[in-house]
Design a protein around this nucleic acid. Structure first.
Lengths: 203, 203
DNA sequence: TTTGTTAGTGAACATCTGTTGAATAAATCT
DNA sequence: AGATTTATTCAACAGATGTTCACTAACAAA
């Protein structure tokens, strides 16, 4: 069933060991400060072995991320599992499952996002966008032609944005509440939105 | 008017030179492959000088980004400039201005996003989210209590998502069209959305 | 213009990087 | 089981890193 296409035992063992070593080191050290030498010393492997599998730390990290993403996708699909016709429940449940997945890997997400593994470009620019009163943008004459690719990217990043907010807020909200909020956003009709210019343009 | 609080001429000169050197090198080399030595050699400064101002390449890059973001904010605020009451035109115009800003700095955005300056975590996870049929999530009973912080982050990342799609599509769309699409998204009433499960769950 | 301050230089250092080659160990295949 | 393939080791290398030092050159303030 799984794609275990004859991968050498040693490779699996080594990669797992290196992954664990990196995760462990990231608990206590900034990502940038962790050296390849640190990782292999901690995992008790030769430095050359690292370079046989990875070009740099980031590649090792992406390998780790890959597994978490697998679980994310699985989580999303769970409600659909034994259904071949659509029900609202399964759809709503999928939303919940996504946030439950993140919650289950809370430590990991916190680690990835807070460590400067991703030099904060998207964080930086998103934070700036957040300051702008974009929420007030609304209410124009209709026309139902939305580019599906743009819309997909819009939605994907929007949810990622919710997750970022959740993570950086220290997971104070429950997964159920997060899912609820997402559904709320989606049904949010901009007709209701109040129009006023923010007067607080300080800094 | 500007916050030029007596910064040593030499610092400005040096930083600008280093920034220019990095940008130039990024045109032809992968970010990861550019060394500090490369940068200072290209800018004709001593290596120690680099470390007096920056800890690592990423910090230098963030300095560059900062200026672009300044222009982004300025662009957004332009339509509001001489207005103290809200008009739809100024709001719509702000949306246009954002995308015009990105378009004006197309090379820069392409450079930043395509170079692996930001190890592709958000890219990776967002792409995965894009594959999930999240657009179909919709149509639930009403309730108008949306967490403003979550909503802000949702919106900010959503727009960032549009920009990402635009950039990676090679800027084939016009800024006006992008702005139009954004406004379309915002007014998009999910009541219209068709409900069906994707049957293509390959891979 | 002089004085105090600080940015930039050049050199040196230990450490880390990325790569290589020959030897060894552990896996896979028949 | 033995034969073959290949992952891992160890040592060595040139180059890059990150830090420090005393020296000088350029700037700011008076």
């Amino acid at each position: 069933m799984s794609s275990n296409q004859k991968i050498d035992k040693r490779i699996k063992r080594t990669k797992k060991a290196l992954q664990n070593a990196l995760i462990t080191l990231m608990q206590s050290h900034d990502f940038k400060a962790i050296t390849i030498t640190d990782i292999v010393k901690h995992a008790d492997y030769n430095r050359g072995t690292f370079y046989k599998h990875y070009k740099y730390k980031e590649e090792l990290l992406e390998d780790i991320i890959e597994e978490v993403i697998k679980d994310l996708v699985d989580s999303y699909r769970q409600p659909y599992q034994d259904t071949d016709s659509f029900t609202f429940n399964s759809l709503s449940a999928s939303a919940v499952k996504i946030f439950e997945h993140v919650y289950a890997h809370a430590n990991f997400y916190q680690l990835i996002i807070q460590s400067n593994a991703l030099p904060g470009f998207h964080k930086r620019i998103s934070n700036e966008l957040k300051k702008l009163p974009l929420q007030d943008l609304a209410e124009i004459e209709p026309s139902p032609d939305i580019d599906p690719e743009l819309h997909a990217s819009y939605q994907a990043y929007a949810i990622f944005g919710m997750i970022m907010e959740w993570v950086e807020g220290g997971f104070k909200l429950t997964p159920a509440y997060m899912a609820d909020q997402l559904l709320e956003m989606l049904k949010f009709s901009p007709v209701n939105s109040r129009f006023k210019i923010r007067s607080d343009l300080e800094k």
